Amino acid sequence: MEQKITNIITYIAASHREMSKILQTKGSIAGQMSSIITEIPDLHPEFDGVEGIQEHSSQIIKSVVAYLNSLAELEEAIAQQTEIVMKEMNGPDAEE
């Protein structure tokens, strides 16, 4: 039984590692996109006026929000899986 639990924990850890790599890449992309904002000129930008700037800024904000939501989902998945493993390790009387 302990070997099964160890295998499950190993698979979960590998899964979390892969998810964190994906999120790290998303974070890097969001960071690079947000750093572009500092390169926007203060006067006479060439983004089709104020509407264009607002549209581009909105896209960047959506990207950052999506990244943060992904981090929250990863945290929740880790917590749920850890809870299941801990209940299994503690035995049947821990579920009461």
Rank of each mutant, 00 (worst) to 15 (best):
I84R: 10
Q24G: 14
P92V: 07
E46W: 02
I12M: 07
Q80M: 07
E76N: 08
L23T: 04
V64K: 10
A30W: 00
T10I: 02
I12S: 12
D93V: 06
E51D: 10
S58E: 09
I22Y: 06
I36E: 05
I37W: 01
S70L: 03
Y67W: 07
S20G: 07
S34N: 10
S28D: 12
E95Y: 11
Q54D: 11
E88D: 11
Q59N: 12
E46D: 15
T25A: 02
M86Y: 13
S58L: 03
N90K: 13
A30Q: 05
G91N: 06
I22L: 01
A77P: 01
G49K: 08
E83S: 15
G49V: 01
R17T: 14
T25Q: 06
S15H: 09
G27Y: 01
S20H: 05
M86T: 15
Y11C: 12
S57C: 03
V64P: 04
S70H: 13
R17S: 13
K21W: 03
I84D: 08
P45E: 10
M33G: 10
M19N: 15
S35D: 11
A66K: 14
Q24C: 08
S35A: 08
A14H: 05
N69W: 06
P45L: 07
F47W: 01
G52D: 01
Y67V: 04
I12P: 10
A79V: 00
S34M: 02
I12V: 10
T82S: 15
M33C: 09
A14F: 03
H56C: 07
S34K: 07
G49C: 02
I61S: 15
Q54M: 11
I40A: 01
P92I: 03
Y67K: 14
S28H: 11
L23V: 05
E76P: 02
Q54V: 11
E18P: 07
E46T: 08
D48E: 09
D48G: 10
V64T: 12
L43F: 11
S35Q: 15
G27E: 00
L43T: 15
S70F: 02
E75Y: 09
L43H: 15
D42S: 12
V65N: 13
I8L: 02
M33S: 10
S63L: 08
S34P: 03
I40R: 01
G91S: 07
A79S: 14
A77R: 02
Q59V: 08
Q24T: 10
E51F: 00
S57Q: 09
L71P: 09
L68M: 13
A66I: 00
A13S: 12
V65A: 13
Y11N: 14
I8E: 04
V64C: 12
E39G: 15
I12N: 14
E88I: 09
V64A: 15
L23A: 08
S35G: 07
T10W: 03
Y67A: 04
I8R: 01
Q32H: 04
M33V: 04
V85Q: 15
L68Y: 12
A66G: 03
S63A: 15
N69Q: 15
A94G: 08
T25W: 03
L74Y: 10
S20F: 01
G49R: 11
M89H: 13
E88Q: 13
I29L: 04
K26G: 00
G52P: 01
D48P: 05
A66Q: 08
I29N: 11
K21S: 14
G91K: 04
I61L: 14
S28M: 01
I84P: 09
A77T: 06
Q80S: 13
G49L: 00
A94T: 11
S28E: 07
I60H: 04
K62N: 11
L74F: 05
